[in-house]
Every structure is written in structure tokens, then in C-alpha cells.
């Protein structure tokens, strides 16, 4: 870990402007992913702005009947919130399937959205990685590489990493939006489906956030009802990243929404796939995973995604 200077911010606007003015500055709140990466010098900030005192830790109702989740609300607090459990059950389910109790107590809403991939080649600085070191190449695409966990769709010849968040998959299925403040003090709202960028030739650029732009909240539209479920498939029963996860909101008439985790560089959802939900899991996946580009080792994820959804539908 490289040396860094440290300051505490008390206001979101102050945090954003400081981040833009200090070279190599980064925000830190929970720190559960950033410190992990700093120890390995995958992240090398020169200055940390501690934003945990900016007061963004509330969950409040919005005027339209939705919910505004402060950027610093912990994963535990968000999952345990009475309204979230009642009206947005898929979000509680997704949050509680991720990480561990200790990590969820520290991890924040914004930090969870911004966590980096868990691709083992990204994590090993002796291996070339276009996300870590643009232009170096992608060891995960090498002959004989280990790619079982990695992405099958939305990936590129430069990067096949997945986004590891469970929470983001639920937020995606709930049509969440991200609220930010820019270094100039302006606010903007970014729908989650526009928040992440696909890797293309620049897998190091993961979101549409501009330098210094600071997430203040995530908002949820009014509850959509329906039966909400999240099935995270993994090798061991807990404390592991997803091979595939499926977020499902299903209405009584059979219509609904589906998003996938563990398969793409972002939570993966397509309108055409949602529309096919009444026709069953195969119909959904033939649209949701159309054009997938798996490796030999992770091609099973296609079948797994379909069967996972089929299982969820079979359960009613």
C-alpha cells in the first residue's frame, strides 16, 4: 500500500470538490473493497477523503412513494429496513446473499455499486490485466487460463470480468437510479441501466461517473409488488461470489422482470427478456443471453442461468 494523506469531509459537495482538486484522491467510506485493493497496489490513491461523516446514512420516502437510500447506508441497515423488507424484498434478499455479516456492516450502498471485479487475474499484479493496467493484455483470455467464474456476455476481447455485486442486480431489476453531486456542485440522476459502461477497449473505465463525482443516494421507484426472489448460485453455501444469480419480480399474471448477476460486467437485464417471462425460463434466457460469448470453462453458466430461473418459476 502506498502512502497517502487523509482528510475527513463533512459535506457531499465539499467531498466532490476536494476530490477534483487533489491529484490521486479517492473517496473512502466502508473501505471493504478499496483497502483490499490498496494492500495489493491495484488501487494506489495518494489521498483519501473519508466521506463517512457526510451524513448520507438515511433511508427516506420519496414524494412519488419510492425510497431514497443514502449513499452511506450500510448493506446491513438497508437489508434490515422495514420498508425494504416489505416492499423491495428482492433487495434484502440480494444484499443478504452477499459477503458476510461483518462486511455488510461496513460496506455502503455507493461502495457496493462501485466495487471492482473479483477476477483473479485482476487481483494478481504479476498477470497482465487491461482493467488494472490498460493495454497490458488479458491473462484471463490466455490459453489455459482459469475463467470458470468470469463473464459470458457484455464482455469484450479486452476483458471478461464480471461485476461482483448482488445488491446491484436487485437494484437493476427494481429500476433504481443513482443520484450524484459533481465537483461543480451540480446534482444529476443516472438510471442504473446507464450507470455502468461495458468494457469494450477500455475496461478500466467502469461507470459514467466523471472525476470527483460523488454518489449521494440511490433511489427506488414506488414498489412494484409481485413475488420477489433472488437465487444466488455458488459452490459453497455462503460467503462466496456468485456463479450465476437471478433477481426475479413476478406478478400474479405471470409478467415481470429478470436480472442476472455473475455473468456480465454489469447487472444484466434486457426488456425483451422481461417481456418473455410469461413464456418461461428458456424464452427469457434466449433473449437475455442472446449473443453470449463464453469460454469453454464458463459456458455452463448459460444452462445454469436458465435452470436457476426455471427453478424459481417452478417454486411459484
Amino acid at each position: 500500500m502506498r502512502a497517502f494523506s487523509y482528510e475527513r469531509a463533512s459535506e457531499p459537495a465539499q467531498a466532490a470538490s476536494r476530490a477534483a482538486e487533489i491529484p490521486g484522491a479517492k473517496f473512502i467510506a466502508g473501505g471493504t473493497n478499496l483497502l483490499d485493493l490498496m494492500k495489493l497496489e491495484i488501487e494506489t490513491p495518494m489521498h483519501l477523503i473519508d466521506v463517512s461523516g457526510t451524513g448520507l446514512d438515511g433511508i427516506t420516502a420519496t414524494e412519488d412513494g419510492g425510497l431514497r437510500i443514502g449513499a452511506l447506508v450500510s448493506n446491513t441497515d438497508l437489508a434490515a429496513n422495514e420498508r425494504v423488507r416489505r416492499d423491495y424484498g428482492v433487495l434484502t434478499r440480494a444484499l443478504m446473499s452477499g459477503a458476510s455479516g461483518q462486511l455488510r456492516n461496513k460496506a455502503t450502498t455507493a461502495g457496493n455499486l462501485l466495487q471492482r471485479t473479483r477476477c483473479p487475474y485482476f487481483y494478481d499484479t504479476a498477470m497482465p490485466c487491461n482493467k488494472r493496467s490498460p493495454g497490458a493484455g488479458c491473462a484471463a483470455l490466455g490459453q489455459g487460463a482459469f475463467s470458470r467464474q468470469l463473464g459470458i456476455i457484455g464482455t469484450s476481447d479486452a476483458c471478461i470480468a464480471t461485476h461482483p455485486s448482488d445488491m446491484a442486480v436487485a437494484l437493476r431489476v427494481l429500476d433504481a437510479e443513482v443520484e450524484t453531486i459533481t465537483p461543480s456542485g451540480a446534482s444529476r440522476t443516472i438510471p442504473l441501466d446507464e450507470f455502468y459502461r461495458l468494457p469494450g477497449d477500455t475496461p478500466d473505465v467502469e461507470t459514467v461517473l466523471m472525476p470527483g463525482e460523488f454518489i449521494t443516494a440511490v433511489t427506488l421507484p414506488p414498489p412494484v409488488g409481485g413475488r420477489q426472489a433472488y437465487h444466488k448460485v455458488r459452490d459453497r453455501a455462503s460467503y462466496a461470489f456468485a456463479l450465476v444469480s437471478v433477481a426475479l419480480v413476478r406478478q400474479a399474471d405471470g409478467s415481470g422482470r429478470v436480472a442476472l448477476g455473475g455473468v456480465a460486467p454489469q447487472p444484466w437485464r434486457r426488456a425483451a427478456a422481461d417481456a418473455a417471462l410469461p413464456d418461461g425460463a428458456n424464452a427469457v434466457m434466449s433473449r437475455l443471453l442472446d449473443g453470449a460469448s463464453p469460454t469453454e470453462e464458463n459456458a455452463f453458466k448459460i444452462r445454469l442461468a436458465e435452470r436457476t430461473l426455471a427453478g424459481m418459476l417452478a417454486e411459484g
Binding site: 497482465p128 493484455g137 488479458c138 491473462a139 483470455l141 490466455g142 490459453q143 489455459g144 487460463a145 459470458i152 464482455t155 471478461i160 428458456n282 424464452a283 434466457m285 434466449s286 443471453l289 442472446d290 449473443g291 453470449a292 460469448s293 463464453p294 469460454t295 469453454e296 459456458a299 448459460i302 436458465e306
Partner: peptide, 13 residues
């Protein structure tokens, strides 16, 4: 319906 996909090619590094 089939789920259309194509295996990704590997490279020598």
C-alpha cells in the same frame, strides 16, 4: 428456442 452463443477464442500471451 436456442440460446445463441459462440465460444470465445483464446490467445497466447
Amino acid at each position: 428456442p436456442p440460446i445463441r452463443f459462440e465460444m470465445r477464442r483464446r490467445t497466447f500471451l
